[in-house]
Amino acid sequence: MGHITNNTTTCHVEVLQFVAYTPLFILGLLLNATALWAFVSRRHAWTDTHVYMLNLAVADFALIVFLPFRMVNAFHCLRTTYLCTFLIYIHYVNMYASILTSTAISVHRFLLVRFPLRAKAWQWKRRTAIVVCVVIWVTVIALAAAYRRTYYPEKLKTCYERWSDELLPPDFLITLVVAGFTVPLLIIVCCSSQTILILWRDKFNSGKEKKHIVGIVTANMIVFIFCFTPVHVSLLLKNSGIQLATAQTTIHHVFLVSEWMATTNCCFDSISYYFLFKSLHPSAGPAGSISRTR
């Protein structure tokens, strides 16, 4: 269904969005720029773990640098042009690149702990990490290109919002929610749980070190669930076809909050970078391997 866009009647000032995204942009920019600088300055010491973390930092940084457009839109409603289409896809491409990279890191971490002796002999690990990261970017960009018309200007009520009667194509929605979130979530929960179980059973690491590592793995899993579950639940609700005006308003507000929550992941990831650079030198055994991962 086509619409005639009129920003003066469909867009209004959203001060809360500006207030919410401003500190997130400042903090995220500082943390991720610092992380990227640290990665580049220590490129001689890169391992496969560093490749995954660098990919995560790039995805987070690319999402953060375009947040000022959203902040400007909160006060001066941007016209619904192809710039809006680009901004929406930049946001989602980088969000799903981050989700898939986090999934790869979780699997990689589990393999290091589950097969520590074999892991030392895997000389091709860094090359594999590079291939995995390339595949992730090709996949999310190809998906965005395939469904590029979904966020064309005529589909948009405002620069960051589709018309309420313009539901996402079912196959696109299923791909985002199932392949883009549910499957990664199950993999992360499974791998993290197994990693924690293996570490607790390890008798060769001190109790303090073990608790520290288990805490990091647990925190990573909780942050993933906290950041990305609400936005996908609200995405389903938003595209459920509910026509009741009061329900649509509530769902709209929930979706805006959940999008902000998903974006906060860019800052939480920086904590992982800190622990990575704190343990640049490998240690023996599973704990030594895991301390260098996300």
Rank of each mutant, 00 (worst) to 15 (best):
M1G: 07
H3F: 00
I4M: 04
T5M: 05
N6D: 09
Q17T: 06
V19M: 14
P23W: 03
S41Y: 02
H44M: 06
T47W: 02
H50R: 14
D60P: 11
D60K: 07
I64Q: 10
V65A: 12
R70L: 14
V72I: 15
N73E: 07
H76V: 08
C84T: 13
L87H: 06
V93M: 08
N94S: 12
Y96H: 11
T101H: 15
S102V: 04
A104W: 01
I105Q: 13
R109G: 02
W124I: 12
R126L: 13
V131Q: 06
V132I: 10
A145I: 15
T150N: 12
Y152D: 13
Y160L: 12
E161F: 07
L167M: 09
P170Y: 00
P170L: 01
D171E: 06
F172D: 01
A179F: 08
T182M: 15
C191W: 04
S192F: 03
S192M: 06
Q194F: 12
D202G: 08
F204I: 03
N205G: 11
K210Y: 02
V217M: 07
V217P: 02
T218G: 15
P230M: 11
K238Y: 13
G241C: 04
A245M: 08
V254P: 04
M261E: 12
T264K: 03
T264P: 04
C266L: 05
C267W: 01
D269Q: 15
S279K: 10
P282A: 12
P282W: 14
A284P: 05
